[in-house]
Design a protein around this nucleic acid. Structure first.
Ligand code: SF4
Length: 424
DNA sequence: ATTGCTGAATGG
């Protein structure tokens, strides 16, 4: 099949249009919406999105003398947030004066505890919610991840990543079109996420062989860290097994990546499988979700979201009601667990797949990786950079010139060499 | 939190 070919046959993906700039997405099955005449409209909209996507990627920045982060600029928002916090100091002080409860010793201790919690990387940088790709970035180089969250950087687009995103989008549009829904609250955004998952489960349970870009979330292994992610592709293979695929593109050559990348890709798909299996076996509780994400179950959803829900035959108006319906569906879905994991590699030059790599799920290995990862997020240990044998990663790192870890390792190396010279 | 606002992933 040619990449970009549209075989959507009526499946639609709604992107969730945020009040400001953000977009997120809901997938709906066209069969449920029934209006056949709309399909061409949806398709052309999707194409607009695809071309917008590529336009924005062309508006590249010129060279800058500050630290320039080609991968992401997540830090900027953190710095902004801290600056914004200063401006809201005054009302907080006023409130304290009125609030007598603050004088209570127990309350003071509680406040101190909460303040301490917000000092931890998990809360300070991620507000208690990790992405699957936070774990993989961390596994590449934890020090680099920390720098992206703590140093103010100027985001510059990385051509290989832009091309990768574009190929991903083309692939996504092969199986569904994209349609936007206006959202007005965090509960709206989560409603869209839930509707997407419900639709994916529904599709896999009945008529669809292939689902792409399925949102997923949970608390893998119930270790107490809330995580979100997006599964590239789920499909039934010839033997009827449920297969989870991750699509990766290679920029430089038609060769498989090195061990470090492969291991990271394996980590990514294993984490998706763990979260998917837990979700469809009904392990997610409403308390876990509401507690971790701090959502208001009584919140009435926005009109655009409600409109969409009504079209697909869901007649609730509060977030909590939708959540309960979703959890019931997860619990009683008869979907199998993911049977096999695969990475598909394509070359950015000709957009053709040239290899697939099978990944063997290893629950113990995954759990150990998370254990070690969470020690950092929970502030139990400091960030670690790469080992000497992985020093090649530094050549491709935006922070190579200022990295303290690298300096320390170089120093250690020199001292070692000095010792061996002295011994001679 | 005194403030709970983030499409996730994109490649190396
Ligand atoms: S220079 Fe090397 S050790 Fe330092 S952050 Fe970059 S990749 Fe990690």
């Amino acid at each position: 099949m040619e990449l970009g070919q549209n075989l959507t046959s009526g499946n639609v993906l709604l992107t969730c249009e945020k009040r400001s700039t953000r977009l997120s997405a809901v997938k709906i099955d066209h069969a449920l919406c029934s209006n056949e005449a709309n399909s061409s409209e949806h398709t052309s909209y999707s194409k607009n999105i695809a071309s917008d996507f590529q336009c924005s990627s062309d508006s590249l920045n010129s060279g800058v003398s500050a630290i320039v982060c080609s991968s992401e600029g997540g830090i900027c928002s953190d710095v902004l947030r801290q600056n914004m916090a200063k401006s809201s100091d005054e009302p907080a002080v006023k409130r304290k004066k009125v609030d007598n409860k603050m004088e209570n010793q127990a309350d003071l201790e509680k406040v101190a505890e909460i303040q301490k919690k917000w000092e931890l990387p998990l809360w300070k940088f991620r507000r208690g919610r990790l992405c699957v790709t936070d774990i993989t970035s961390q596994s590449w180089c934890e020090q680099q991840l920390l720098y992206t969250y703590t140093l103010p950087t100027i985001p510059v687009e990385n051509k290989a990543m832009v091309k990768g995103s574009s190929l991903h989008l083309a692939r996504e549009l092969e199986v569904h079109d994209i349609v936007p829904v206006k959202v007005t609250s965090r509960e709206d955004s989560w409603a869209i996420k839930l509707l997407n998952i419900m639709d994916a489960i529904n599709g896999l349970s009945f008529d669809r062989l292939c689902i792409r870009e399925m949102p997923i979330f949970g608390d893998p292994f119930e270790m107490g860290v809330f995580m979100v992610g997006i599964i590239d592709e789920l499909k039934y293979n010839e033997s009827g097994e449920l297969q989870l695929l991750e699509f990766k593109s290679r920029s430089s050559s038609k060769t498989l990546p090195g061990k470090a990348q492969k291991l990271n890709h394996a980590l990514q798909v294993m984490l998706y499988k763990q979260m998917f299996d837990e979700l469809v076996s009904g392990k997610l509780s409403r308390e876990m979700i509401l507690g971790h994400v701090n959502l208001d179950e009584g919140k009435v959803l926005g009109s655009a979201v409600l409109d969409h829900m009504q079209k697909t035959g869901i007649h609730f108006d509060k977030f909590g009601e939708l959540l309960d319906a979703a959890l019931l569906q997860f619990q009683f879905s008869s979907l199998p667990h993911v049977d096999s994991l695969e990475i598909e590699y394509c070359f950015q030059g000709d957009c053709l797949s040239f290899a697939t790599d099978k990944v063997q799920f290893d629950s113990d290995w995954l759990r150990k990786k998370l254990d070690h990862s969470f020690l950092f997020w929970r502030g139990v240990r400091e960030a670690e950079g790469v080992d000497i044998e992985d020093a090649w990663k530094c050549q491709n790192c935006d922070f190579v010139d200022i990295c303290e870890w690298r300096k320390k390792k170089q120093q250690e190396c020199m001292e070692k060499n000095q010792i061996s010279i002295n011994k001679l």
